[in-house]
C-alpha cells in the first residue's frame, strides 16, 4: 500500500491463500464487502500507516508460490467516512419496529383503557407503608439509588417518588430523601413540590425534605444508616440502582423494624434486597411502577408494547437456537441469512 502511485509501497498484510475468506458471520449478508469466497484484509489507521479522509491510497497485490511471484495492477481508492453503518441496519430496523409497536399499544390503550395489569405486591404495599408511618408518627425514607439522571433506573425512581410524595402529602407524613447526586436532588425537589401541589397540600411542603449528603458511596451509606438509627423511619424505600451499599442500608433498616420496599434493576444486588426487604420490585417492575401506580392508559399501553417486544425476543431466541443447532447438525450455513438478522455487528 502506498500514498502515491510512484511512492514506495509498504507491506500491510501477508497471509496464506487458504485464509481470510469472506465467510458467514464476519459480515452481515446485507453489508458484505466482497463476494463469499473472496479474500479480505481489514486495514486500521495506525501510527505506522495513518489513513486520512479524502486522501487517495494505492494498493497492489503480490501472489507468491514457491519462488514464483506475480504482481497485480495498482488499484486506487480514496478514503471517505461513511454516513451510515450499514452493518447495524438490523439494529435500526428493530428500534423503529419496537417504537411502532409501542405507539400502537399506546393508541390501543387509549381506545380501550381497561388493560389488565398483574398485581405487584411491592407497589400495593406503598399505601400500607405510608399509612403505617402516619400511625407511628415517624418519617418515610426514600432513596433514589446511586445513579445520576442519565440512568433509566434513577428516572424511574424519581417518577415513583412523585407518586409516593402525593400520598405522603395526603397523609401529612414527613418525607426524607437523602441524595448522592446534586442534579437528581434538584429534580426530586421539583417533583416533590409539584406532588404536594397536586395533592392540594402546598403548605405542607418542606424544601429540605430533599437534601444532598455526598457522592461518595460509603460516606453516603454511613450517613443514611445514621438517619435510620436516629430517626427510625417507619418505612424505607430503596429505588434505583445500587452496589455494595445495598445490604448495609437494608440490614440497618431491618434492624430498626421499618417496613422496607426495594425496586432495582441492579440484578447483582437482588439477592440482598430479597433477603432483607419486605417487598422487592425486580428489574423492569421498577420501570412499570409509574404505570401501575397512576393507572394512566398511555403508560399502561407501553407495558403492553414492552410485553409484545419481549414475546418477539423470546420467539427469536427459540427460532435462532433451533436454526443454529440444525445448521450444525446438517453442516450447512444456509440459515445464516436469517440468523444474521439478530446478530450485533459493528
Amino acid at each position: 500500500m502506498a500514498e502515491g502511485a510512484a511512492a514506495p509501497f509498504k507491506k500491510v498484510a501477508e497471509f496464506p491463500s487458504n485464509t481470510r475468506y469472506v465467510k458467514p458471520g464476519d459480515f452481515p449478508w446485507w453489508a458484505q464487502p466482497a463476494a463469499k469466497g473472496d479474500h479480505y484484509v481489514k486495514l486500521v489507521s495506525s501510527q505506522a500507516f495513518p489513513i486520512e479522509n479524502g486522501k487517495p491510497y494505492f494498493v497492489k497485490l503480490r501472489v507468491r508460490e514457491g519462488v514464483q511471484e506475480v504482481w497485480s495492477e495498482v488499484a486506487e481508492a480514496t478514503a471517505a467516512p461513511n454516513i451510515f453503518n450499514t452493518a447495524q441496519a438490523n439494529n435500526l430496523v428493530f428500534v423503529v419496529a419496537f417504537t411502532g409497536v409501542l405507539l400502537a399499544s399506546i393508541a390501543a390503550a387509549r381506545r380501550n383503557p381497561h388493560v389488565h395489569l398483574r398485581r405487584i405486591a411491592g407497589l400495593d404495599a406503598v399505601e400500607e407503608a405510608i399509612g403505617r408511618s402516619t400511625e407511628m408518627g415517624r418519617p418515610i425514607l426514600y432513596l433514589t439509588g446511586s445513579g445520576g439522571m442519565d440512568e433509566v433506573s434513577t428516572i424511574a425512581a424519581t417518577v415513583i417518588l412523585g407518586e409516593v410524595a402525593k400520598k405522603v402529602a395526603h397523609y401529612d407524613t414527613s418525607l426524607k430523601v437523602p441524595h448522592r447526586d446534586p442534579i437528581v436532588m434538584a429534580v426530586c425537589q421539583e417533583i416533590v413540590k409539584e406532588s404536594y401541589v397536586a395533592a392540594g397540600r402546598p403548605d405542607a411542603y418542606k424544601d429540605d425534605s430533599n437534601f444532598f449528603i455526598t457522592s461518595d458511596q460509603f460516606s453516603y451509606t454511613a450517613a443514611v444508616d445514621g438517619i435510620m438509627l436516629r430517626e427510625k423511619p417507619a418505612a424505607n424505600f430503596f429505588m434505583g440502582s445500587y452496589f455494595a451499599e445495598s445490604l448495609l442500608l437494608t440490614e440497618t433498616g431491618a434492624s430498626t423494624g421499618a417496613i422496607q420496599i426495594a425496586g432495582t434493576d441492579s440484578d447483582h444486588q437482588l439477592p440482598f434486597f430479597v433477603t432483607t426487604c419486605d417487598y422487592t420490585l425486580i428489574g423492569e417492575e421498577l420501570y412499570a411502577a409509574s404505570a401501575y401506580l397512576s393507572r394512566e392508559p398511555v403508560l399502561v399501553g407501553t407495558l403492553r408494547g414492552q410485553d409484545i417486544g419481549k414475546a418477539l425476543i423470546m420467539g427469536a431466541l427459540i427460532l435462532g437456537t433451533c436454526l443454529a443447532t440444525l445448521g450444525v447438525l446438517l453442516g450447512t450455513d444456509g440459515f445464516s441469512y436469517l440468523l444474521d438478522l439478530f446478530k450485533d455487528f459493528k
Partner: peptide, 24 residues
C-alpha cells in the same frame, strides 16, 4: 430490564413520560 429501558427511553424522548419534570 433492557426492554424496559428502551421503552422508558422512548417514552421520555417522545414526551409520553414527563413526570420526571415534576407535576405529573
Amino acid at each position: 430490564v433492557s426492554m424496559g429501558q428502551v421503552a422508558l427511553s422512548l417514552k421520555i424522548i417522545l414526551g409520553i413520560e414527563r413526570a420526571y419534570l415534576g407535576g405529573g
